[in-house]
Simulated scan of single mutants.
Amino acid sequence: MTVTTDDGVRLWASRQGQGGEALVLCHGGPGLWDMFEDVAALLTDRATVVRWDQRGCGRSERGAGPWTTERFVADLDVVRRHFALDRPVLLGHSWGAQLALSYALAHPERVGGLVYVSGTGIDPVSTWHGAFEENFRARLGEVPERYARWRELTDGDRERAVLQWSVDFGDRERALEQAGRMADPWFEIDFECNKALGAETKESWGTPELYAACQDLDVPVLIVDGERDIRPRWAVDSLERALPRVRRVVLPGAGHLPWVEDPEGFREAVGAVLAGSVRGPVTGSG
């Protein structure tokens, strides 16, 4: 299905499931594409699930900037309106968690709940990125020939991406297999989009205005972490402290894509949001 934005860009989108809450999924990246087929399969009996590829990415129209959070928030609102969704629950993963949070901050009255999966919090990028890079080198270096091969390949190569994504899984024996599934189907990574939005995040994240906006956000939020994500989980503490209506769930043994390695735990956690049970000033891990 094609959704056309107000500036004429064509976005790929899909709706699955029947009844229940509306759930809109925001994929990671930036510059990647929707990899939420497994998530949709877990939740379509509980929700109407909408998936979409962000502008310039995957099955959406390529090369179509501008690459700004404001523009991506506007695109998400176009998707919401296209499917006539009143106050959907937003589920964002990694960069998509940041996008979903940005949308909720801009339009809290249009959001029924937020599921923030494997994000990196609201502190400056500089506070956690060094630890992430160290963890990346250590985990990929567990198999030295993989690390050496990754360094030989160039950005945009599918094999390099699979090797890089393999660090995102807690189960090291199946990591390469699981990363290969992420790359099927394979689309060209939009590095221009990735660079532009990454630079914007470095400048705008961690400001007093962002902390204040999160403190005022009157939307129930569920934070979902995989215990073995190489992005330091303490980076998300900043967001948890700021939000007035938040619950946090840590899935033991899971990595950056927790629904892959603990599908039942993930389904249970998100199901609580869809059932409307994540309400009020509830906080803590569970």
Rank of each mutant, 00 (worst) to 15 (best):
M1C: 10
T2D: 12
A13V: 03
G17I: 06
L23I: 10
V24C: 08
H27Q: 13
H27G: 04
G31C: 12
D34V: 13
M35T: 15
A40S: 15
T44E: 12
D45Y: 10
R51W: 08
S60P: 03
E61C: 01
E61K: 07
R71S: 07
F72K: 03
L76E: 09
D77M: 10
V78W: 09
D86Y: 14
D86Q: 15
W95Q: 01
A97K: 01
L101T: 02
Y103C: 00
Y103A: 00
S118R: 05
S118A: 14
T120E: 14
G121S: 09
S126N: 12
S126T: 13
G130Y: 11
P144V: 12
A148M: 14
L153W: 13
E159S: 02
R160D: 09
Q164L: 15
G170L: 07
L176S: 07
E177D: 15
C193M: 12
T201F: 13
T201Y: 13
P208W: 11
C214M: 02
L217T: 00
D218E: 11
P220L: 05
I223A: 02
G226S: 04
R233P: 03
R233K: 13
A235F: 07
V236L: 01
D237C: 03
E240W: 04
A242M: 07
P244M: 06
A254I: 01
R267V: 02
A275P: 02
R279P: 09
P281C: 03
P281H: 10
